[in-house]
Amino acid sequence: MKLGHFKPVEITIYGAEQICASCVNLPSSKETYEWLEAALTRKYPNQPFSMNYVDIMNPPAEEKLQAFAQRVIEEDMFYPVVLIEDQIVAEGNPRLKTIYVEMEKYGYQAPTV
């Protein structure tokens, strides 16, 4: 199977060490980040993507990341918040199927067996 040429998508996960009040029995944002990275790597082998984790309580200096981290807090979003190419695709407990559908819009393909 020959894969199409595409630009690796950027996935950004905004979260915090403290689990959000509505997400008490769910994994932490950092655990979700690690789980999602592993799942996407397995689903789309040899199809690169970049993943970034942003701590909403201590975001990096980049203005765009700080602004969205502030928005997560101000709008009381359920975190982690998952963005693909700056589009929100999941809040709280992300569903893999939803993220796969979004990835496939950018040309990612699961290998056929």
Rank of each mutant, 00 (worst) to 15 (best):
M1F: 01
K2S: 13
H5S: 13
F6G: 01
V9P: 03
V9T: 10
I11D: 08
I13H: 10
G15D: 05
E17L: 12
I19H: 01
I19C: 05
A21K: 08
C23S: 10
S28H: 01
Y33E: 05
A39W: 01
T41Y: 02
T41A: 10
K43T: 11
P45D: 02
N46P: 05
N46K: 09
S50E: 12
Y53A: 07
Y53H: 11
V54Q: 00
V54H: 03
I56A: 07
N58E: 14
P59G: 10
P59S: 13
P60G: 12
P60K: 11
E62M: 12
E62T: 13
E63N: 13
E63W: 10
K64R: 15
L65T: 06
Q66N: 11
F68H: 01
E74P: 05
E75F: 05
F78T: 14
Y79P: 13
P80F: 09
V82G: 02
I84Q: 02
E85I: 05
V89F: 03
A90C: 03
A90T: 05
E91H: 08
E91M: 15
P94K: 03
P94G: 06
P94I: 04
R95K: 14
L96A: 04
L96Q: 07
K97H: 08
T98V: 12
E102T: 15
E102Y: 06
K105D: 13
K105Q: 09
K105T: 09
G107F: 09
Y108W: 02
Y108Q: 00
Q109F: 04
T112C: 07
V113E: 14
V113A: 15
